[in-house]
Design a protein around this nucleic acid. Structure first.
Lengths: 148, 148
DNA sequence: CTAAAAGCTACAGTGACTGGAGCTGCAACC
DNA sequence: GGTTGCAGCTCCAGTCACTGTAGCTTTTAG
Protein backbone atom coordinates (compact mmCIF):
# COMPACT_ATOMS: atom_id res chain seq x y z
CA UNK A 1 0.00 0.00 0.00
CA UNK A 2 1.67 3.16 -1.24
CA UNK A 3 -0.30 5.75 0.67
CA UNK A 4 -3.81 7.05 0.52
CA UNK A 5 -5.13 3.62 -0.35
CA UNK A 6 -7.40 2.82 2.56
CA UNK A 7 -11.13 3.21 1.95
CA UNK A 8 -13.28 4.64 4.71
CA UNK A 9 -14.96 1.38 5.69
CA UNK A 10 -11.67 -0.38 6.26
CA UNK A 11 -10.38 2.57 8.27
CA UNK A 12 -13.52 2.48 10.38
CA UNK A 13 -13.10 -1.22 11.10
CA UNK A 14 -9.46 -0.78 11.99
CA UNK A 15 -10.28 2.02 14.42
CA UNK A 16 -13.38 0.42 15.87
CA UNK A 17 -15.76 3.19 14.93
CA UNK A 18 -18.47 3.90 12.39
CA UNK A 19 -17.95 5.32 8.94
CA UNK A 20 -20.13 8.29 9.86
CA UNK A 21 -17.95 9.06 12.83
CA UNK A 22 -14.93 9.47 10.56
CA UNK A 23 -16.82 11.77 8.24
CA UNK A 24 -17.99 13.69 11.30
CA UNK A 25 -14.40 14.13 12.53
CA UNK A 26 -13.44 15.45 9.12
CA UNK A 27 -16.38 17.82 9.14
CA UNK A 28 -15.46 19.32 12.50
CA UNK A 29 -11.81 19.58 11.54
CA UNK A 30 -10.29 16.85 13.72
CA UNK A 31 -9.17 14.74 10.80
CA UNK A 32 -7.64 16.41 7.73
CA UNK A 33 -9.54 15.79 4.49
CA UNK A 34 -8.08 12.75 2.72
CA UNK A 35 -7.31 12.20 -0.94
CA UNK A 36 -10.22 11.30 -3.18
CA UNK A 37 -10.59 8.89 -6.06
CA UNK A 38 -11.80 10.11 -9.44
CA UNK A 39 -15.26 9.13 -8.24
CA UNK A 40 -14.89 11.29 -5.09
CA UNK A 41 -14.42 8.47 -2.60
CA UNK A 42 -12.12 9.04 0.36
CA UNK A 43 -8.79 7.23 0.45
CA UNK A 44 -6.71 7.34 3.60
CA UNK A 45 -3.07 6.72 4.44
CA UNK A 46 -1.15 5.56 7.50
CA UNK A 47 -0.96 9.06 8.96
CA UNK A 48 -4.73 9.24 8.99
CA UNK A 49 -4.99 5.87 10.64
CA UNK A 50 -2.61 6.95 13.41
CA UNK A 51 -4.45 10.18 14.01
CA UNK A 52 -7.81 8.44 14.12
CA UNK A 53 -6.52 5.88 16.62
CA UNK A 54 -5.24 8.72 18.76
CA UNK A 55 -8.65 10.38 18.68
CA UNK A 56 -10.55 7.19 19.43
CA UNK A 57 -8.27 6.27 22.29
CA UNK A 58 -8.64 9.71 23.81
CA UNK A 59 -12.41 9.48 23.40
CA UNK A 60 -12.43 6.13 25.18
CA UNK A 61 -10.61 7.84 28.01
CA UNK A 62 -13.43 10.35 28.10
CA UNK A 63 -11.60 13.38 26.72
CA UNK A 64 -14.03 15.80 25.05
CA UNK A 65 -13.35 16.78 21.45
CA UNK A 66 -12.04 20.28 22.28
CA UNK A 67 -9.44 18.71 24.58
CA UNK A 68 -8.49 16.25 21.86
CA UNK A 69 -8.08 19.12 19.45
CA UNK A 70 -5.57 20.68 21.87
CA UNK A 71 -3.77 17.39 22.34
CA UNK A 72 -3.48 16.88 18.61
CA UNK A 73 -2.09 20.38 18.18
CA UNK A 74 0.45 19.67 20.92
CA UNK A 75 1.49 16.36 19.43
CA UNK A 76 2.15 18.10 16.14
CA UNK A 77 4.65 20.46 17.77
CA UNK A 78 7.26 17.95 18.81
CA UNK A 79 9.53 20.59 20.32
CA UNK A 80 7.06 22.31 22.56
CA UNK A 81 6.57 21.80 26.25
CA UNK A 82 4.92 18.76 27.71
CA UNK A 83 3.22 20.77 30.46
CA UNK A 84 0.20 21.49 28.30
CA UNK A 85 -0.58 17.86 27.68
CA UNK A 86 0.01 17.16 31.34
CA UNK A 87 -2.46 19.81 32.39
CA UNK A 88 -5.16 18.49 30.05
CA UNK A 89 -4.72 14.94 31.29
CA UNK A 90 -4.81 16.11 34.89
CA UNK A 91 -8.02 17.99 34.27
CA UNK A 92 -9.50 14.86 32.76
CA UNK A 93 -8.38 12.77 35.73
CA UNK A 94 -10.14 15.17 38.06
CA UNK A 95 -13.32 14.95 36.02
CA UNK A 96 -13.15 11.15 36.13
CA UNK A 97 -12.64 11.23 39.87
CA UNK A 98 -15.61 13.51 40.38
CA UNK A 99 -17.79 11.17 38.34
CA UNK A 100 -16.64 8.12 40.28
CA UNK A 101 -17.38 9.77 43.60
CA UNK A 102 -20.86 10.70 42.52
CA UNK A 103 -21.67 7.37 40.95
CA UNK A 104 -20.49 5.55 44.04
CA UNK A 105 -22.90 7.43 46.26
CA UNK A 106 -25.67 6.92 43.72
CA UNK A 107 -24.96 3.23 43.80
CA UNK A 108 -25.23 3.02 47.55
CA UNK A 109 -28.55 4.80 47.51
CA UNK A 110 -29.87 2.54 44.79
CA UNK A 111 -28.71 -0.50 46.76
CA UNK A 112 -30.32 0.81 49.92
CA UNK A 113 -33.52 1.41 47.99
CA UNK A 114 -33.55 -2.10 46.57
CA UNK A 115 -32.61 -3.78 49.83
CA UNK A 116 -35.74 -2.44 51.48
CA UNK A 117 -38.11 -2.81 48.58
CA UNK A 118 -40.19 -5.61 50.02
CA UNK A 119 -43.63 -4.01 49.77
CA UNK A 120 -45.89 -5.92 47.44
CA UNK A 121 -48.02 -2.89 46.59
CA UNK A 122 -46.80 0.37 45.17
CA UNK A 123 -48.04 2.26 48.18
CA UNK A 124 -45.49 0.41 50.31
CA UNK A 125 -42.75 0.43 47.70
CA UNK A 126 -39.48 1.74 48.96
CA UNK A 127 -38.22 2.58 45.50
CA UNK A 128 -41.12 4.92 44.84
CA UNK A 129 -41.03 6.31 48.36
CA UNK A 130 -37.35 7.10 48.18
CA UNK A 131 -37.76 8.91 44.91
CA UNK A 132 -40.76 10.84 46.17
CA UNK A 133 -39.10 12.03 49.37
CA UNK A 134 -35.58 13.30 49.15
CA UNK A 135 -35.38 13.29 52.95
CA UNK A 136 -35.24 9.50 52.87
CA UNK A 137 -31.87 9.43 51.22
CA UNK A 138 -28.84 9.48 53.42
CA UNK A 139 -26.07 10.44 51.08
CA UNK A 140 -25.11 13.59 49.34
CA UNK A 141 -25.43 13.05 45.67
CA UNK A 142 -26.14 16.56 44.65
CA UNK A 143 -24.58 18.62 41.98
CA UNK A 144 -24.80 17.96 38.29
CA UNK A 145 -26.44 14.75 37.26
CA UNK A 146 -24.91 11.33 36.93
CA UNK A 147 -24.20 11.47 33.26
CA UNK A 148 -21.43 13.14 31.27
CA UNK B 1 -51.61 29.14 49.83
CA UNK B 2 -54.84 27.51 48.72
CA UNK B 3 -53.58 25.59 45.73
CA UNK B 4 -52.21 26.56 42.39
CA UNK B 5 -50.48 29.60 43.84
CA UNK B 6 -46.81 28.88 43.19
CA UNK B 7 -45.22 30.73 40.27
CA UNK B 8 -42.74 28.90 38.11
CA UNK B 9 -39.63 30.65 39.42
CA UNK B 10 -40.39 29.75 43.01
CA UNK B 11 -41.09 26.15 42.02
CA UNK B 12 -37.79 26.03 40.17
CA UNK B 13 -35.88 27.31 43.21
CA UNK B 14 -37.62 24.84 45.50
CA UNK B 15 -36.73 21.93 43.20
CA UNK B 16 -33.22 23.09 42.41
CA UNK B 17 -33.70 23.34 38.68
CA UNK B 18 -34.16 25.98 36.02
CA UNK B 19 -37.42 27.50 34.94
CA UNK B 20 -36.87 26.21 31.42
CA UNK B 21 -36.46 22.69 32.71
CA UNK B 22 -39.96 22.80 34.22
CA UNK B 23 -41.46 24.07 31.00
CA UNK B 24 -39.56 21.34 29.19
CA UNK B 25 -41.00 18.64 31.46
CA UNK B 26 -44.47 19.99 30.75
CA UNK B 27 -43.78 19.98 27.04
CA UNK B 28 -42.70 16.35 27.00
CA UNK B 29 -45.60 15.30 29.20
CA UNK B 30 -43.79 14.52 32.44
CA UNK B 31 -45.50 17.29 34.40
CA UNK B 32 -49.23 17.96 33.87
CA UNK B 33 -50.05 21.47 32.63
CA UNK B 34 -50.74 23.74 35.60
CA UNK B 35 -53.44 26.38 36.08
CA UNK B 36 -52.86 29.75 34.46
CA UNK B 37 -53.52 33.29 35.59
CA UNK B 38 -55.63 35.64 33.47
CA UNK B 39 -52.34 36.80 31.97
CA UNK B 40 -51.42 33.19 31.05
CA UNK B 41 -48.72 32.68 33.68
CA UNK B 42 -48.33 29.21 35.22
CA UNK B 43 -49.41 28.67 38.81
CA UNK B 44 -48.53 25.41 40.53
CA UNK B 45 -49.83 23.56 43.58
CA UNK B 46 -48.36 21.12 46.09
CA UNK B 47 -49.03 18.12 43.88
CA UNK B 48 -46.90 19.62 41.16
CA UNK B 49 -44.12 20.33 43.61
CA UNK B 50 -44.12 16.72 44.79
CA UNK B 51 -44.07 15.37 41.28
CA UNK B 52 -41.25 17.67 40.25
CA UNK B 53 -39.19 16.68 43.28
CA UNK B 54 -39.75 13.05 42.35
CA UNK B 55 -38.54 13.69 38.82
CA UNK B 56 -35.50 15.69 39.91
CA UNK B 57 -34.49 13.12 42.48
CA UNK B 58 -34.77 10.33 39.94
CA UNK B 59 -32.70 12.39 37.48
CA UNK B 60 -30.02 12.90 40.12
CA UNK B 61 -29.94 9.14 40.46
CA UNK B 62 -29.32 8.95 36.74
CA UNK B 63 -32.67 7.55 35.64
CA UNK B 64 -33.41 8.51 32.03
CA UNK B 65 -36.69 10.30 31.34
CA UNK B 66 -38.43 7.24 29.82
CA UNK B 67 -37.71 5.30 33.02
CA UNK B 68 -39.05 8.18 35.09
CA UNK B 69 -42.18 8.19 33.00
CA UNK B 70 -42.69 4.54 33.88
CA UNK B 71 -41.98 5.15 37.55
CA UNK B 72 -44.47 8.02 37.64
CA UNK B 73 -47.12 5.86 36.03
CA UNK B 74 -46.45 3.13 38.60
CA UNK B 75 -46.62 5.53 41.51
CA UNK B 76 -50.00 6.70 40.29
CA UNK B 77 -51.41 3.17 40.46
CA UNK B 78 -51.12 2.63 44.18
CA UNK B 79 -52.62 -0.87 43.99
CA UNK B 80 -50.37 -2.33 41.35
CA UNK B 81 -47.35 -4.52 41.84
CA UNK B 82 -44.04 -3.25 43.10
CA UNK B 83 -42.06 -5.56 40.83
CA UNK B 84 -42.07 -3.06 37.98
CA UNK B 85 -40.43 -0.34 40.03
CA UNK B 86 -37.99 -2.87 41.39
CA UNK B 87 -36.97 -3.97 37.93
CA UNK B 88 -36.41 -0.39 36.77
CA UNK B 89 -34.27 0.42 39.78
CA UNK B 90 -32.26 -2.76 39.33
CA UNK B 91 -31.63 -1.94 35.70
CA UNK B 92 -30.40 1.49 36.76
CA UNK B 93 -28.13 -0.01 39.40
CA UNK B 94 -26.56 -2.23 36.78
CA UNK B 95 -25.96 0.75 34.52
CA UNK B 96 -24.33 2.64 37.39
CA UNK B 97 -22.12 -0.33 38.18
CA UNK B 98 -21.02 -0.61 34.57
CA UNK B 99 -20.10 3.06 34.52
CA UNK B 100 -18.15 2.81 37.76
CA UNK B 101 -16.18 -0.15 36.48
CA UNK B 102 -15.27 1.65 33.31
CA UNK B 103 -14.39 4.92 34.97
CA UNK B 104 -12.19 3.13 37.49
CA UNK B 105 -10.09 1.58 34.77
CA UNK B 106 -9.96 4.90 32.95
CA UNK B 107 -8.69 6.49 36.12
CA UNK B 108 -5.91 4.01 36.53
CA UNK B 109 -4.77 4.52 32.99
CA UNK B 110 -4.82 8.28 33.39
CA UNK B 111 -2.85 7.98 36.60
CA UNK B 112 -0.32 5.70 34.97
CA UNK B 113 0.00 8.16 32.12
CA UNK B 114 0.58 11.09 34.45
CA UNK B 115 2.97 9.22 36.70
CA UNK B 116 5.35 8.65 33.80
CA UNK B 117 4.93 11.99 32.10
CA UNK B 118 8.39 13.27 32.88
CA UNK B 119 9.51 14.16 29.38
CA UNK B 120 10.05 17.87 28.97
CA UNK B 121 9.46 17.81 25.24
CA UNK B 122 6.35 16.54 23.52
CA UNK B 123 8.34 13.90 21.71
CA UNK B 124 9.08 12.25 25.05
CA UNK B 125 5.67 12.91 26.55
CA UNK B 126 4.02 9.86 27.98
CA UNK B 127 0.55 11.37 27.77
CA UNK B 128 0.79 11.87 24.04
CA UNK B 129 2.56 8.57 23.52
CA UNK B 130 -0.07 6.64 25.42
CA UNK B 131 -2.85 8.19 23.41
CA UNK B 132 -1.04 7.57 20.15
CA UNK B 133 -0.35 3.92 20.83
CA UNK B 134 -3.11 1.81 22.24
CA UNK B 135 -0.63 -0.98 22.85
CA UNK B 136 0.89 1.04 25.69
CA UNK B 137 -2.20 0.80 27.81
CA UNK B 138 -2.48 -2.15 30.09
CA UNK B 139 -6.12 -2.15 31.01
CA UNK B 140 -9.26 -3.02 29.18
CA UNK B 141 -11.37 0.04 28.92
CA UNK B 142 -13.21 -0.78 25.78
CA UNK B 143 -16.85 -0.57 25.07
CA UNK B 144 -18.93 2.59 24.96
CA UNK B 145 -17.25 5.77 26.01
CA UNK B 146 -16.90 7.18 29.47
CA UNK B 147 -19.83 9.52 29.39
CA UNK B 148 -23.60 9.02 29.68
C1' DC C 1 -47.85 55.26 38.05
C1' DT C 2 -43.72 53.51 36.96
C1' DA C 3 -39.88 50.55 36.82
C1' DA C 4 -37.88 46.22 37.69
C1' DA C 5 -38.35 41.51 37.98
C1' DA C 6 -40.43 37.62 36.40
C1' DG C 7 -43.00 35.34 33.03
C1' DC C 8 -44.46 34.12 28.18
C1' DT C 9 -43.68 31.70 23.30
C1' DA C 10 -40.88 30.05 19.83
C1' DC C 11 -36.84 28.64 18.18
C1' DA C 12 -31.82 27.56 17.94
C1' DG C 13 -27.86 25.38 20.01
C1' DT C 14 -25.20 21.94 22.85
C1' DG C 15 -21.95 17.23 22.28
C1' DA C 16 -20.83 13.55 19.87
C1' DC C 17 -22.44 11.14 17.21
C1' DT C 18 -26.28 8.04 14.59
C1' DG C 19 -29.62 6.91 11.08
C1' DG C 20 -32.02 7.44 6.84
C1' DA C 21 -33.11 8.75 1.96
C1' DG C 22 -31.72 8.70 -2.38
C1' DC C 23 -28.12 8.60 -5.18
C1' DT C 24 -23.29 6.97 -7.42
C1' DG C 25 -18.75 4.22 -7.59
C1' DC C 26 -16.35 0.18 -7.85
C1' DA C 27 -14.87 -4.61 -8.11
C1' DA C 28 -16.06 -9.32 -9.22
C1' DC C 29 -18.13 -12.74 -11.72
C1' DC C 30 -20.23 -14.66 -15.95
C1' DG D 1 -19.58 -5.94 -21.68
C1' DG D 2 -23.32 -6.48 -18.51
C1' DT D 3 -25.02 -6.91 -14.10
C1' DT D 4 -25.11 -7.55 -9.33
C1' DG D 5 -24.30 -5.97 -4.85
C1' DC D 6 -21.62 -3.87 -1.46
C1' DA D 7 -19.57 0.32 -0.34
C1' DG D 8 -19.41 5.00 -0.68
C1' DC D 9 -21.35 9.77 -1.40
C1' DT D 10 -24.11 14.20 0.34
C1' DC D 11 -27.52 16.23 2.93
C1' DC D 12 -30.56 16.34 6.52
C1' DA D 13 -33.01 14.96 10.71
C1' DG D 14 -32.94 12.84 15.17
C1' DT D 15 -30.97 11.54 19.74
C1' DC D 16 -30.95 13.17 25.11
C1' DA D 17 -31.92 16.41 28.42
C1' DC D 18 -31.78 20.30 28.67
C1' DT D 19 -29.94 25.55 28.00
C1' DG D 20 -29.87 30.03 25.88
C1' DT D 21 -31.72 33.85 23.31
C1' DA D 22 -34.96 37.32 21.26
C1' DG D 23 -38.66 39.89 21.72
C1' DC D 24 -42.46 40.40 23.92
C1' DT D 25 -46.20 40.76 28.22
C1' DT D 26 -47.54 40.35 33.12
C1' DT D 27 -47.03 41.01 37.80
C1' DT D 28 -45.51 43.24 41.84
C1' DA D 29 -43.15 46.62 44.91
C1' DG D 30 -42.48 51.20 45.92
Amino acid sequence: MPDASIPIGQLARSAGCKVQTIRYYEQVGLLPPPARTAGAQRRYGEAHRQKLRFIRHARELGFPLPAIRELLALSDQQESDCAGADRIARRQLEAVNRRITMLTSLRSELERMLAHAHGKRIRDCRVIATLADHGLCSHEHHGTAASS
